[in-house]
Amino acid sequence: MIIVFFRNRRIKRLIPCILEIILALKNRGIPPNVNIISKRLGVNPQIVKRALDEAFSENLLLKDSWELTDSGRSLILKHRGKFIHDKFMHKSPIFKFSGTFNNLSSHLKSNHGFSSNDVASIKDSLSSLQGRIEELMPLSKIPPKSKCVVVLTIGGYGFVRRLADMGLTPGVEVLVERNAPFGGPIIVQVRGSSVALGRGVASKILVRLLEA
């Protein structure tokens, strides 16, 4: 009984990750199948199969084409929002968010001081992300002397515009020069100039690490 309960819970948690991978694979033009997904996730193919069945039956994924349905897409949005929120916005690992993306946006407004415009801007970035959110790291966690590519910036329109004005737009390559210990700011090379970013700012810039 208990084992079944935990296994079902695990499968439920896997579904958004699997959807993310399918989306990423499709974007790269690779037809998704169970084996690739299980390799990517490091999970037994049997379990992936179960999770896929669950996703088909809940109408998150179309059975033949493996296209995501609207509810599948909104599940991904919610998953990404939750990931960003739990990982970057709360310092304590205990606080976890559950509920739909709409719940999350009202939570962002009431507890994190974002305006409706800010939340709209965050939603834009999240829904467009190419690739899996788990592969991204905040710029603040990148060790010195390594290169990375900015994938998305999280924040209100004013904040993302300011970063863009300083050259930090999605797709730009960034070299981390200094990463001060104990929550200090970092220095990056971007578009030919050095820019210092406070820790809070750097943790809202999600990047993909390039090989050193």
Partner: peptide, 18 residues
């Protein structure tokens, strides 16, 4: 624009300038 490009509009315009 945001739906097509999937980025906040200020970022779309900044990216195109760059």
């Amino acid at each position: 624009l945001e739906k097509v490009h999937g980025e906040p509009s200020p970022v779309i315009i900044a990216s195109e300038r760059y």
